[in-house]
Simulated scan of single mutants.
Amino acid sequence: MRPPSHAAPLPDPTIRMTTGWHCLHLYYRVNPQVWGGLDSAARRAGLSQLEELLNPERAGNPERLQVFAVSGHRADFGLMMLDPDPLKIDAVKQAIRATAIGAALEPTYSFVSITEVSEYVPTVEQYSERLKMDGVSAEDPSYAAKVRAYEQRLPMMNQQRLYPDFPNFPVICFYPMNKIRDPHANWFTEPFSVRSALMAEHATSGIKFAGKVSQLITASTGFDDWEWGVTLWSRSPEHIKEIVYTMRFDQASAKYAAFGPFYIGYILSAGDLLKHLKLEAGV
């Protein structure tokens, strides 16, 4: 007879995250040859289907869905979607393929990831210690005020990291990245204290762009070929260049980071996107 186990019962199997959401970036190109071979009835039906599918308010769509026109030759338009259920996200991709114009819409790039709270986000206790290391005395009235403000801010920041809202900015940039494993600069062999200090410097550079740029970093280790995906939204295009350039001088980036392709886009409604793409039903 097997002795009773004292281990805690395992949770039920699930495709949902314990905390956080699944995320998908998906990019498409319009194939002009296939589009040209579609008759006006197929075009009309497909455009109507696509506009409905890309409506964030459509019943059954993911919790977050955003569409945008993409600059450059690698894609014509893109989608970013987040939801607790990865199959609800995938259902949009499958529905696009199944539209009357689906054969003319070629996926050119995708990035699969999940939301997370980074291990480098300091706890209230760690933040307090950093203030002391920066020369702020615990007896200084500003010390208690800063700690209290951070304690109040932290839950809201973590909520946005795990269950993000899209900011009301017109420009979106996405790129994947890794931390390198170069023999002379291997991020993964550095002690946590060193990595944490480098990420604190990196975060300080990013804070300078508050109000101009909003950032979401999603984790992709085990989900895609890169370790993280970085999504930036900005109030105007130049802020994208400024923040990426500025933060590349931080050691965490300059010494340890490798970057994938950059995709720049401009947020549009589904209807405005189809007009921008010059997809017309014809006569």
Rank of each mutant, 00 (worst) to 15 (best):
P11K: 01
P13F: 04
P13W: 00
Y28F: 10
V30Q: 01
G36D: 12
L38Q: 07
A41F: 09
A41G: 05
A42F: 01
G46S: 11
L47K: 02
E57W: 08
P62L: 05
Q66M: 12
A69V: 02
G72S: 10
G72Y: 09
D83M: 07
P86H: 02
A91C: 11
A91S: 15
R97L: 09
A100E: 11
Y109T: 04
V112C: 03
T115Y: 04
V117Q: 05
V117W: 01
D134I: 00
S142A: 14
S142P: 04
A144N: 10
R148N: 14
Y150H: 10
P155A: 12
P155N: 14
M156P: 00
Q160V: 08
L162N: 03
F166Q: 05
N168H: 15
Y175S: 07
P176G: 09
M177K: 05
P183A: 04
N186K: 10
N186Q: 09
E190H: 10
E190F: 11
M199A: 09
A200P: 03
H202G: 03
A203V: 12
G206Q: 07
F209S: 12
G211F: 08
V213W: 02
S214R: 04
L216N: 07
T218L: 07
T221N: 07
D224F: 05
W226C: 03
W226F: 14
E227I: 02
V230Y: 02
P237K: 05
I243Q: 00
I243F: 04
V244Y: 08
V244A: 08
T246Y: 13
M247C: 06
R248H: 15
D250S: 10
Q251T: 11
S253Y: 01
K255C: 13
Y266P: 02
I267N: 03
G271K: 13
L279K: 03
E280W: 11
V283E: 14
